[in-house]
Simulated scan of single mutants.
Amino acid sequence: MTAYRRSSATAMVAVAACTILFALSFLATPVKFLADGVPIEHLLAVGRVTFRASAASEAVLLVLLVILAPGRSRIVACSVAALLAFQWLVLMPELDARTLARMSGRVMPSSGLHGWWIALDVLRIVLYAAIARAAIARAMMRVGKTPPAANDLERGSPTAI
């Protein structure tokens, strides 16, 4: 695989992981609670399945990133994997127990665990974006171009295309 293709593949995988994480955590999860007439127990059951599926797909993409990403980007990908593992091994058991209790009809006091989960999701999104940005910059350098400056994009400069 050429360096250009490897960089391009790294960028695509990072963007895919970032997109899945954002779409499921910040769009699908809150929106499902807006459904009228659906019992909260059913919504929580759907959420449990959705989170497991998103974690599995993200784990596959992370394995690909660790394989594809060079140097510091590989270290960042490993950091994302560590964050995901922390969320699932430390936070998720307690969150899952709370969800199961709520599904059985118990009223649960509020917890800061959701805030921690959200903060770590945001951090993972930022790290995926950093991996993608670095990979795109590497790919552009491989074809003799450098990434355009942000102000070039705003002015519509032909060099930004």
Results as ranks from 00 to 15, higher is better:
L64Y: 02
P109W: 04
A139C: 03
M1K: 02
R6E: 04
G115W: 02
M1V: 01
L62D: 00
L24E: 10
A16P: 01
P148K: 12
P39I: 06
A23T: 13
V46Y: 10
V13E: 01
L61T: 02
V126L: 15
R124H: 04
P70C: 04
P93K: 12
L127D: 02
A11V: 00
A130H: 05
I161S: 11
A35N: 01
L34G: 12
A132C: 01
R106C: 05
A28G: 08
A134N: 12
A55W: 07
I161Q: 09
A14G: 00
I125G: 02
L113G: 05
D96R: 08
L21N: 11
R6G: 04
A119T: 01
R142P: 04
K145S: 09
A85N: 11
D152C: 04
A59W: 02
T159V: 15
A135N: 09
T50C: 13
S7C: 02
L89M: 10
L27W: 14
Y4K: 10
R6Q: 11
S110I: 06
S54R: 14
F86S: 13
P39T: 03
A59Q: 04
A130F: 03
L95R: 07
A28D: 10
D96T: 03
R133W: 06
C78L: 15
L27R: 13
G47A: 06
V46D: 03
V38M: 13
T50M: 15
